[in-house]
């Protein structure tokens, strides 16, 4: 799976197929309340299932504003 991290670095990671969004983001060390996840450019919920072929972007919700 191609994963774009909040700092824009790209990681290719082997994941169970399918994998729940929440499990993936916890595995990557993020708290679900502090990030959003987009699959192939569209926001998905934490209980959605991701496929190995999906491109995932993780967006950190910065504090302040």
């Amino acid at each position: 799976m191609k994963i774009i991290l909040p700092d824009k670095t790209i990681r290719y990671q082997k994941v169970p197929n399918p994998v729940p969004v929440e499990a993936l983001i916890r595995d990557l060390g993020f708290d679900p309340i502090e990030v959003l996840v987009a699959r192939n450019g569209t926001l998905v919920t934490e209980d959605a299932l991701l496929e190995e072929s999906d491109e995932i972007r993780i967006i950190r919700i910065a504090h302040g504003g």
Partner: peptide, 26 residues
Amino acid sequence: MAGTVSSTKTPPWSLCTEPAVFHDKR
């Protein structure tokens, strides 16, 4: 898988059949 939502299935407690972008856990 229990407690998860496939990309093609309408999740429970949805208001419509469009893809969900937000899950209010409360």
